[in-house]
Computed example of a mutant assay.
Amino acid sequence: MKKSIVCMFFASLLAGASAQAGNDQKKGQVGATELQINPWARSSGMANANTSRIRGVESMNQNIGGLSFVKGTEILFSSTKWLSGSDININSFGIGQQLGESGGVMGLSVMAMDMGDFKQTTEDAPDQDINFGVSMINLGLSYSKTFSNAIHGGITVRVISESIPDASAVGVAFDGGVQYTTSLGKDSLAKDNLHIGVSLRNVGPEMQFSGDGLAGRGTMNGQTVNRSINERSESFELPALLNIGVAYDINLSALNRLTVAANFVSNTASDDQIQLGAEYAFNEKFMVRGGFDYHKGIFGDEREMAHTGPTAGATVQLPFGEDNTRIFGLDYSYRASNPWGGSHSVGIKLGF
């Protein structure tokens, strides 16, 4: 029964992808593109290639199936200088809570973008010196469960809020994901070393801006009395995407692990991506990782993204407490870009 449910879920993901993804003619026609940003340090340092193997709270961004691996409580903080020099900062918080031995895991995540200050000008006062801010906040509520020793899946409901002082838009998006883990090999070091993952993200109804900022003064039907006229903004789609990933653990010894991973991203209204990454871990306490995020034109003059592909990162994760059952982790990642000085992410992980 469990396998049938998972097979049906895979089928629904692929069916949704065929309807949503891969249309170059729709470039630039979607909004809420901050949903495509990965604010977490561990997975971004691996170029997001670990869709099939991602674990814990970070899974709420890439593949919610990985949230089911949380044992007890996991808390994650992250701060990102996005395209260093552009004055854009991203702050994220996430928490995952296990619901008993077989009740699954609930998760909550918040991502907020600080775009800095903008100068406000109007037709009546083009030289006024007034600053205003832009608010972009995403709030996600997730549930993930282990269906068997090999199958893990879940779903996320995300509320999207974008606003300036006189106009705002609110939307809802849904994510779903499944991870499958199995053993490839017969020796003791080959346990659960092959990982396959599929996730469909950012699927939801169109969003539309409204507010006083879209209103103006004018006349109607030849009348001489000025009236307030509201202009209706065009609605926009969400940047839905499909992830299909695979990863393989090369267990060099009981303390040394090397993971290689690949991920294919099919985007609704932008070029598809191929993401490659690798991670070396010593005793699961010290980790270094790197990756490359490839998309069409990245090596030539046709490049349409600021990030140029290479990524790198590192983690120090140590136990603490009287019985060493609690975990403290410090993460860092770098994503190269041109122009600007790359994107830097720093994260703190607590597990207890």
Rank of each mutant, 00 (worst) to 15 (best):
S163M: 01
S86I: 03
S199P: 01
N131S: 14
F174I: 15
S79M: 15
I151K: 14
G103H: 07
Q128R: 14
N149R: 11
N149H: 09
S148K: 10
V178S: 02
I88K: 00
G177E: 05
H195S: 08
I155H: 11
F93N: 01
G96P: 10
D175I: 02
L194W: 09
H152S: 15
G94W: 03
S68H: 02
L200I: 12
T146C: 07
E123G: 11
G107V: 09
I155N: 13
G153H: 08
S183W: 08
I130D: 10
E74D: 13
I90V: 13
G171T: 09
S68C: 03
S144V: 09
S109W: 02
G185A: 13
D192Y: 01
G94I: 04
I137F: 00
T146D: 10
I196F: 15
S86H: 02
A125H: 15
T181W: 03
Q179I: 06
G72Q: 06
K186D: 13
L194R: 09
V105K: 05
I155M: 15
R201C: 11
E74C: 06
Q97R: 11
V157I: 15
T156N: 14
F69Y: 12
L99Q: 13
L99E: 06
I90S: 11
S92K: 04
Y180E: 11
A173K: 07
V159K: 00
Q179M: 09
V157C: 13
V105E: 05
S142P: 06
M111D: 09
L76I: 01
E206T: 13
T181Y: 05
